Computed example of a mutant assay.
Amino acid sequence: MKPFISLEGRRALITSGTRGAGAATVALFQELGAHVLTTARTPPPTPSAFEFVAADLTRPEDCAVLAKAVRERLGGVDIIVHMLGGSSAPAGGFAALGDAEWNRELDLNLMPAVRLDRELVPDMAARGRGVVIHVTSIQRALPLPEATTAYAAAKAALSTYSKSLSKEVSPQGVRVVRVSPGWIETEASVDLAVRLAAEHGADVAEGKRMIMASLGGIPIGRPSTPDEVASLIAFLASDRAGTITGTEYVIDGGTVPTA
């Protein structure tokens, strides 16, 4: 029986693919038959079957190195999944954010996608086929002003850029789609729950409830798993989603209270 989804023979670049939802996406793409190249600042702790390039994608020169590696190792790319993102901005609201903090958030959450697309999407358009998936965040619509203003603004910029790119290259056969996760239960988020629990003399379950409360609640009562996010990305990258472009898919357990 033909599988519901196959990525057999597809060449895929997945950024930030050694931890969390990125690692889950790499593993699923490989399971579905894709030839995957991923990147992070440091190599994975154990040898892996996927192609890997060590790169700091906040640096323009490292984006260029990665694009060159994609051409040399994969011979081009059919699917790009921009997983990279995060925030290191301090708490304290907008007044705590200087130019350096704003630049760091933009350099991490927006510019790597812009630079890599500029390097790689023209070849997709020339072939008349390809998929680009930008992983944004529900915080583009639901920012947390105490600590994530700059991150949320950068993800909103990524979403707007993605929509504009889709309008430009979809007529040339390149689909551009956004995936907008809420809280994902990664190792890093569990560590945060542990820290919150310790600060309040509570258990880890209570630490998780604190995180959900800070988001205004999650109606299904739990965060998404990395595998669930990866499954959505794989579907959107597949031919099953062949007429989907220019739109954003939220996976947040119902956190955002409006459509």
Rank of each mutant, 00 (worst) to 15 (best):
L192D: 14
L215R: 15
T255V: 14
T160C: 05
R73F: 04
L74K: 03
P257K: 05
A198Q: 14
V194S: 04
A12W: 07
L215Y: 11
E146T: 11
I14S: 12
V131Y: 13
G254T: 10
L192N: 08
A23L: 15
V190H: 08
V65C: 09
G76R: 02
T15V: 12
E51W: 06
G76P: 03
S189D: 05
P257M: 02
E8T: 13
E61N: 04
I218W: 06
R127G: 08
P226R: 02
V204A: 01
T247C: 12
N103I: 00
S214A: 15
P112D: 07
A156R: 02
G221T: 01
P112N: 04
L57I: 14
L32S: 00
G86E: 09
R127M: 07
V70L: 03
S16E: 14
P143W: 01
L110Y: 08
D252H: 09
R115M: 06
I211W: 04
A40S: 15
V177F: 05
S87M: 07
A156T: 03
V131R: 13
A213D: 14
P223W: 05
V169C: 02
A237F: 03
S231E: 13
S189T: 15
E199N: 15
P47Y: 03
G253L: 06
R175N: 11
K68S: 14
S170G: 09
W183Y: 12
L32Y: 02
E31G: 10
A141P: 04
T258Y: 15
I80Y: 08
A34T: 11
